[in-house]
Design a protein around this nucleic acid. Structure first.
Length: 493
RNA sequence: GGGUCGUUAACUCAGUCGGUAGAGUAUCUGCCUUUUAAGCAGAGAGUCGUUGGUUCGAAUCCAACACGACCCA
C-alpha cells in the first residue's frame, strides 16, 4: 500500500469517526461573524488579560498548522483575508469537543467560536469555546516550511498553490486590481466598455494563426478571434466614439514565458484622437496604475529598476536604430545598405519584403531588448502596418507607436486608417504578399471595407497586453504566473 | 522545431566507483495546558517518470519516449 493511500485511508477513517460522533463533514450551517482580516486590526484593543466575552468572534478557515499538546493545542487558520492563531484548551471546549478536535487534520476547514486574547509572545489569538469541523480534507497539504515549489504542480493544481503560497494570491489580487483600474481610468474618460464576437467568420485585425471551430446549425467554420479590432472600429462607424474591450484573444501558436494560447487584451478606440494623444493617455494610465498597485512609479522587475514616471522616451524607429543600436544615419538612408545590414545580421526576408520590413526586423533584433524604461517607438513602415493611417508627410511610414518596457512590447497603437479605398488595397496587398505559412490566411473582410465606405470618423486605437502589464507590475517572470490556469500538456499518469 | 538541465516518499531534497533506498517536514503511536518550522521517544510509508538495452547486478551507464524548466528559432 502506498503512503498516499495510507494517508487517504487514515483521513477517511477519521472522517468516518467524526461522522460516527455526529459531525456533519460537509455541512453548511456555520456562519462566521468576522473575517480574519477584520479581527487582526483589533490587536491593539486586546491584551493578555482581556476577559472572555469582551471580544467574541466566530470565524471559519482552513487549518494550516497545528501544535498539539496533551490537553491544549495551537493552530493557525486561514481565510481569504488573512491567517491567525487559535488556542484550543480541553478545559475550555470540554472533553467531547476536544476529542473531535483531535481528529482534525491540517487542511481541514473549521469554524471557531471564541474570544480574543494575547499569548505570552503577544500574538493575537482566539481562545476557542467551540471548534466545529466544517469541511473535511482528504488530501495532505505540501510541507509547511518549503511549501509547494514544483512549478508544474503549481500550475496544474493552482488550488493547492493558492492555499499554501500567499504571494501567489497577492499576484492574482493585483491582477484583478489592475484590470479594475484600467476600467476606471477609461470609463472616467468617457469610454464605453463593449463586447464583440469571440467567434468570427474571418480572423482579422492581426496576423496570427487562429483556432478553428465549427458551427453545426449554420454549417460554417468559425475562428476564435485573434483580435477584436475590426469589430471595435465598426462601432466607431456606428457612432460610438470611445469604446474599449478587455477580453481574451486566441492565437494558435507556441507557448513560452511570454505567450499563452489565450491571453487578455485591452483594446480601445477614440474618435477624433491621434496616436500622439494615445501616447499621453498611455503614459498617464500605466504610471497611475503602477502607483496605485505598487505604491510607486519606480518598480523593480527581474532585479532591475524600471522608472515609469512620465514623460517617457519617444523615438522613431530610425532614431532608435541610430541611438540605441548605433547604426550610422547614412546607412539607414540607403535602402541597399539597409538590406545588406539585415542580411549581415542573419535576418531572413521574404523576396517581396521592402526596406521598411528590414528596418523593423533590425529594430526587433538590435533595439527591443535594450528598452528597459518605457519607450514609445513611432513611424513604423506602412508595409508592416496594414491597418494604420499613413503619415501625411511621409506615406512610407504610419502614424503608429509601440510601447516597450523591460525589452517587451506592452502596447501597439495607431491613428486608424479610415480611407476605404486605401484599406481595400492594403488588404489585397497583404493577401498577395502572404508568407509561406499555410495556417496564416489573410482574407479580405468585405464587410469591414463596406463599413468604412459609410465613413469612420478619424480615430486612434490601441491594444495593451494585460498579461504582460500584470507581469511587469507584479514582478512575475512568466506569463503562467499571472494566468490562473495556464495551458500545459495533458498530465501523464 | 533545436539545445541544455530536471523528474527519487504526500512536500522539500540527498544518494559516492554500478552492489539492491536516505534525511527533514507531513502521517501514525506514546508523553506533554502558552506554542510559533514546538519538543522528546518510537513506527509506518518508495513502480527511483515510462519502456527497452548493457551488466552477475542499474536510482546510478546507454537509447527512445513522456512531462516540466531555461535558452535558441
Amino acid at each position: 500500500m502506498s503512503e498516499l493511500n495510507q494517508v487517504l485511508k487514515q483521513r477517511r477513517q477519521k472522517a468516518d469517526d467524526l461522522a460516527e460522533l455526529g459531525v456533519a463533514l460537509y455541512g453548511n450551517s456555520f456562519t462566521p461573524t468576522h473575517r480574519i482580516g477584520e479581527i487582526l486590526p483589533m490587536a491593539d484593543r486586546v491584551t493578555a488579560d482581556t476577559a472572555p466575552g469582551v471580544h467574541q468572534v466566530k470565524v471559519a478557515g482552513r487549518i494550516l498548522a497545528m501544535r498539539k499538546f496533551g490537553k491544549a493545542s495551537f493552530m493557525h487558520i486561514q481565510d481569504e483575508s488573512g491567517r491567525m492563531q487559535v488556542y484550543v484548551q480541553r478545559d475550555s471546549v470540554g472533553d467531547e469537543q476536544y476529542t473531535i478536535f483531535k481528529k482534525l487534520d491540517i487542511g481541514d476547514i473549521v469554524g471557531v467560536t471564541g474570544w480574543l486574547f494575547k499569548t505570552k509572545t503577544d500574538e493575537l489569538t482566539i481562545h476557542a469555546d467551540k471548534v466545529v469541523p466544517v469541511t473535511k480534507s482528504l488530501r495532505p497539504l505540501p510541507e509547511k516550511f518549503h511549501g509547494l515549489t514544483d512549478v508544474e504542480t503549481r500550475y496544474r493544481q493552482r488550488y493547492v498553490d493558492l492555499i499554501v503560497n500567499p504571494e501567489v494570491r497577492d499576484t492574482f489580487r493585483k491582477r484583478v486590481e489592475i484590470i479594475r483600474l484600467v476600467r476606471d481610468f477609461l470609463v472616467n474618460r468617457g469610454f464605453m466598455e463593449v463586447e464583440t464576437p469571440m467567434m468570427q467568420p474571418i480572423a482579422g485585425g492581426a496576423t496570427a494563426k487562429p483556432f478553428q471551430t465549427h458551427h453545426n446549425a449554420l454549417g460554417m467554420d468559425l475562428y476564435l478571434r485573434i483580435a477584436p479590432e475590426l469589430y471595435l472600429k465598426r462601432l466607431l462607424v456606428g457612432g460610438f466614439e470611445r469604446v474599449f474591450e478587455i477580453n481574451r484573444n486566441f492565437r494558435n501558436e507556441g507557448l513560452s514565458t511570454r505567450h499563452n494560447p489565450e491571453f487578455t487584451m485591452l483594446e480601445f478606440y477614440q474618435a477624433y484622437a491621434t496616436y500622439h494623444e494615445l501616447m499621453d493617455l498611455t503614459e498617464e494610465m500605466i504610471s497611475w496604475i503602477a502607483a496605485e498597485v505598487t505604491g510607486s512609479m519606480v518598480i523593480t522587475y527581474n532585479g532591475q529598476e524600471v522608472d515609469l514616471s512620465p514623460p517617457w522616451k519617444r523615438y522613431t524607429i530610425e532614431e532608435a536604430l541610430v541611438e540605441v543600436a548605433g547604426i550610422a544615419p547614412e546607412t539607414l538612408a540607403d535602402p541597399d545598405k539597409v538590406m545588406a545590414l539585415a542580411r549581415e545580421k542573419g535576418i531572413k526576408l521574404q523576396p517581396q519584403a521592402g526596406v521598411g520590413k528590414a528596418k523593423t526586423e533590425l529594430f526587433e533584433l538590435l533595439v527591443e531588448e535594450k528598452l528597459i524604461n518605457p519607450t514609445f517607438v513611432t513611424e513604423y513602415p506602412t508595409e508592416v502596418s496594414p491597418l494604420a493611417r499613413r503619415n501625411e508627410k511621409n506615406p512610407e511610414v504610419t502614424d503608429r507607436f509601440e510601447l516597450f518596457v523591460t525589452g517587451r512590447e506592452i502596447a501597439n497603437a495607431f491613428s486608424e486608417l479610415n480611407d476605404p479605398v486605401d484599406q481595400k488595397q492594403r488588404f489585397e496587398r497583404q493577401i498577395n504578399e502572404r508568407g509561406d505559412d499555410d495556417e496564416i490566411f489573410p482574407v479580405l473582410d468585405e464587410d469591414y471595407v463596406r463599413a468604412l465606405e459609410y465613413g469612420m470618423p478619424p480615430a486612434a486605437g490601441e491594444g495593451i497586453g494585460i498579461d504582460r502589464l500584470v507581469m511587469l507590475l507584479t514582478d512575475s517572470p512568466s506569463i503562467r504566473d499571472v494566468i490562473l490556469f495556464p495551458h500545459l500538456r495533458p498530465e501523464t499518469k
